[in-house]
């Protein structure tokens, strides 16, 4: 252990602003990459699932197919 107390650890021997800003930016960017990748994947899966469900419904009930194609508002809300 290079530091005796927790306060010394945060002070970084007077270099706190430099050390913590460099580490902070790195942590923020890495975390941002992970969160972005996760959100991206979830959104794509949701879109895909919605699309498959919509097409399944259209295939099951072709009579409803024609009006819905013109009026796209119908299915986006209930998903």
């Amino acid at each position: 252990m290079a530091f005796d107390t927790l306060q010394e650890f945060f002070a970084m021997g007077g270099h706190a602003p430099y050390v913590w800003s460099a580490w902070g930016l790195t942590a923020a960017l890495l975390l941002g990459c992970v969160l972005h990748a996760r959100a991206e994947r979830r959104q794509l899966l949701r879109q895909l699932e919605r699309r498959v469900r919509r097409e399944g419904r259209l295939a099951a009930d072709p009579a409803r197919a024609t009006p819905i194609q013109h009026d796209s508002g119908g299915y986006t809300n209930d998903a």
Binding site: M1, A2, F3, M12, G13, H15, Y18, V19, A22, W23
Partner: peptide
């Protein structure tokens, strides 16, 4: 951050 020794010349800024 916590265990590596500080640099004798640069002190703790070396942890960057």
């Amino acid at each position: 951050l916590a265990f590596a020794p500080a640099d004798y010349q640069q002190g703790n800024s070396f942890r960057i």
